[in-house]
Amino acid sequence: MSETVKKFFYVNRKAPYGTIFAQEALEVVLIGAAFDQDVSLGFLDDGVYQLVKGQDTKDLGVKNFSPTFRALGDYDVTKLFVEKESLDERGLSADDLDEIMYEDEDDDWAEKPSIRIVSRAEMADIMADQDVVLSF
């Protein structure tokens, strides 16, 4: 394989149900995962609301796609960076987020958390380190 692997970063800045952005982003991530690139996701601003636990949309008649984040590990998408300042501003902490795990193939399939809480400065560094940034 001489193909170069590129770093793809999906930026999620929108809350889950008010607009279609969040769900579409997740769909694009799942489709894009077929291309074997180095994929990671960033959640900042209202995007952090996508990962809040206890979502229940049955009265809305729309799909609750929050469980799908837990399938990302199967698609080899194992880095979900969540911005601490965005959580703080919204009165949230890491405990308010869904538990999203992946199995590390290189570590005897040990279960590891996909969510990594990072500072705003770290988020900026991560963004600046990408080949492609896709925003939603």
């Binding site: 930026v11 800045r13 963004m127």
Partner: peptide
């Protein structure tokens, strides 16, 4: 620039 990022 090396990349473009849209803030939507």
């Amino acid at each position: 620039n090396d990349r473009t990022q849209s803030w939507l």
